[in-house]
C-alpha cells in the first residue's frame, strides 16, 4: 500500500539554518529547510521572481533570502515579503520519530506512485 507521506530522510541530514534539495523526476525540485529553531519547511526550489534556487539562500528566522536577487520568501507560506509580490508552493511536511515526511500528493501529484531514494 502506498502511504500518504513520503519519508525523505533523517532530520540530522539537514544542518540548522540551512536547506537541502530533493529532485523529483518529472516534477519540481523541492527545497527542504531547517531553521535555527529546529523547524522544518519544504518549498518548491524556485523563487517566484526569477526562479532562483531558494535552497541556497541565507536562512534567518523563518525567512530565506533568494541568492539571485535577495527577495525574502516566507518559509511558512511561500509568500514574498516586503514590497515584492509572488508566491512559491509550500509542500506539507511533518517530522515523526526523527524522520522528515512530505505529503506524497504534493510532491508527485495525486495519482502516481513514487519512491524516495
Amino acid at each position: 500500500m502506498i502511504g500518504k507521506w513520503l519519508d525523505i530522510g533523517s532530520v540530522n541530514q539537514i544542518e540548522p539554518g540551512t536547506a537541502r534539495t530533493l529532485p523529483v523526476q518529472g516534477g519540481e525540485e523541492i527545497a527542504v529547510f531547517r531553521t535555527m529553531n529546529g523547524e522544518f519547511h519544504a518549498l518548491v526550489n524556485k523563487c517566484p521572481h526569477k526562479q532562483g534556487p531558494l535552497s541556497q539562500g541565507i536562512v534567518h528566522g523563518n525567512v530565506v533570502t533568494c541568492p539571485l536577487h535577495n527577495w525574502n520568501i516566507s518559509l511558512k507560506t511561500g509568500e514574498a515579503l516586503g514590497e515584492d509580490k509572488g508566491c512559491v508552493p509550500v509542500i506539507p511536511l511533518k517530522v515523526d520519530a526523527g524522520r522528515i515526511f512530505l505529503l506524497r500528493e504534493a510532491v508527485i501529484g495525486p495519482s502516481s506512485a513514487a519512491e524516495a531514494a
Partner: peptide
Amino acid sequence: ADLHQHIAEVRPLQV
C-alpha cells in the same frame, strides 16, 4: 558533502 548532495531523490514507480 551535505552542501553538495541532495537529501534524496523522488522517482515515479513503474506502474
